[in-house]
Structures are given as C-alpha cells and as structure tokens.
C-alpha cells in the first residue's frame, strides 16, 4: 500500500535512481575518492590532465576534488531543506486534514499566504541580512518550502480519514496522535515521497542560485559557488570549460535524477489506481 508494487519493481532499474545513488555515494565517500585536497593550490588554469582530470581553477585548486566535496554541500543543503520542509508540510497538512474545523481554516489560511510569497526573492532578502552559512540557508529554505506539500498532504488525509480502518480506530478509542501516526500517515507516504524528491531538487537549484549571487557559504565549496567563481573570476571569458561545465552538469544531472524518480513514483501510483 505504501509505495506500490510497480514502483518498487521499477525504481531500482530507473537510471535516475542509479544516478542519484551514485551522487550520494560520492558525497559520502568524497574524502576517500577525491584525488587531491580541494583547498590545496597547484598551478592555476590547468586544463584536464592525468594528474588533474578536470584541471584546476584560478586559485590552482583541483576541480575534480572540489566537485566531489561540493556534492556534500549541494546534496546536504538540498536534503536538509527538504527534510525540514517535508516535516513541516506533513505536520501542518495532516493536522489540517485530520482535525478539520477551525484548525483546518487557520492552517490552510496561513499556507495560502505563504504559498503566494515568491520564495527565491524572499530568501535573497533574508540571506542578505544574515551571515551566509550552509546551515542558515538550509534552515531558511526549509522554513519556506513546505506550503505545496502541506496542501497535498491535507487533501490526501481528508480522503484517508474517511476510510473504514480509520473510522474503526476512532470507534475503538485510540488517541488521535496514534491514529495519525499508525493509520493515516502510512497511507499518505506515497503522495509525500514524490513531492519530497521535487523539494530536494528545487532546494538544490535554489542553493546554486543563491551561491551565484554570492549569498552562499563562502567557506563551503558547493557546485553553485564553483560556477559563481568561474563566472566572476573570468573562467567563462577565458574559455575554461572544465571549470564551469562540470558543476553545472552535476547540478542538472542530480536534479534530473530526482525529478525523474518523482515522476516515476507518481505515474506508477496512478497506474495502480487504474488497475485496481
């Protein structure tokens, strides 16, 4: 009932899932995989060579190593923000859908207001006032990105709460918290998962965009930061493609893998719906 038969069968063979898994492994194992220390300086502006497979940047840092360590920041911020946002969205959406009444009105009213605030400009404004750090950016995005999930969870919970087993649990007299955790949420997880992946994806794009504005964590080499430096320190005009292309491709690939996994989950859920 949770993720679906066909999704379970097709996810492991989905290229998106494999790519994402590869990025995760690289992020976890980057200290062992990276050929060099990303902060160590070699000769600058080197093209790809055997010693530096993706060359070096203006500071002489090895780009492949930067890229591997960068995956930690980019994925970390994306996953972290998405986890915060998903927790918030689930709690708010589930409470609104399960308790209904005034709780629903108030929570959804707040959601509607937040939904209309353009998120990236707000993040830019808030980040401009604060000392940028990876954790701060994760927090800001997590606290803003939950709105559409809350709506989706709410409408699903509204359906689930009418189902027989929930009614039965209420009649027996289980406390609401118990019913939500054991009956309602397990039947909502399949609408949360695809949205969670999309949230990771959009948080990663947002992180890269903030870094491009110079609002990223200056002490963390994220993929967005690498593109930002390549742009502002002449990597583009000097034609150093090995400097800016790899981080851009990494962002696109990892976002693409997340979005395609999300689509797969979404579509296999609908197929099942039709089959039953």
């Amino acid at each position: 009932m949770s993720c679906g038969i066909s999704a379970k069968r097709s996810l492991p063979s989905n290229p998106g899932a494999l790519i994402f898994l590869a990025f995760l492994l690289i992020a976890l194992l980057s200290p062992y995989l990276a050929p060099h220390d990303p902060w160590k300086r070699y000769e600058p502006y080197l093209g790809p060579s055997r010693d530096h497979p993706l060359g070096t940047n203006d500071m002489g840092n090895d780009i492949l190593s930067e890229l591997m360590f960068g995956s930690r920041v980019s994925l970390g911020v994306g996953l972290g923000a998405a986890i915060i946002a998903t927790l918030m969205g689930t709690i708010i959406g589930a409470s609104a859908g399960y308790f209904r009444g005034w709780m629903d009105e108030v929570l959804m009213g707040i959601t509607d207001i937040f939904l209309m605030i353009p998120q990236i400009p707000l993040v830019i404004v808030v980040a401009a006032f604060l000392k940028p750090s990876a954790i701060m950016i994760t927090l800001i995005m997590g606290l803003l990105w939950w709105t559409s999930l809350a709506r989706i969870v709410r409408s699903r919970v509204l359906q689930v709460r009418e189902m027989a087993f929930v009614e039965a649990a209420k009649v027996i007299g289980f406390p609401d918290r118990h019913i939500i955790l054991t009956d309602v949420l397990p039947n909502t997880i399949h609408v949360i998962m695809p949205k969670f992946m999309l949230t990771v994806a959009s948080a990663m794009i947002a992180e890269a965009s903030l870094s491009f504005l110079g609002l990223g964590d200056p002490n963390a080499k994220s993929w967005g930061m690498m593109i930002n430096f390549a742009f502002s320190r002449g990597g583009f005009l000097n034609g150093c493609w090995w400097w800016y292309m790899p981080p851009g491709i990494c962002i696109t690939l990892s976002v693409l893998s997340l979005v395609s996994m999300s689509m797969l989950l979404e579509e296999s859920r609908e197929d099942e719906h039709v089959a039953s």
């Binding site: 994806a201 794009i205 890269a208 965009s209 491009f212 967005g224 593109i227 742009f231 583009f236 005009l237 034609g239 800016y244 851009g248 962002i251 696109t252 690939l253 976002v255 693409l256 979005v259 395609s260």
Partner: peptide, 22 residues
C-alpha cells in the same frame, strides 16, 4: 524539457551566452 526544467536558469543563460555570444 525535463533537462531544461532541471537546469538552474542562470547556468543555461551562461552556457548559451558563451556559445551564441562568445
């Protein structure tokens, strides 16, 4: 379209500026 969707707009802009402009 999925690839465009997944690319940060500024990176897309940088790339095409580089190709078509530079």
């Amino acid at each position: 379209f999925l690839t465009i969707y997944s690319t940060p707009p500024y990176f897309l802009a940088l790339l095409s500026l580089y190709i078509f402009g530079f």
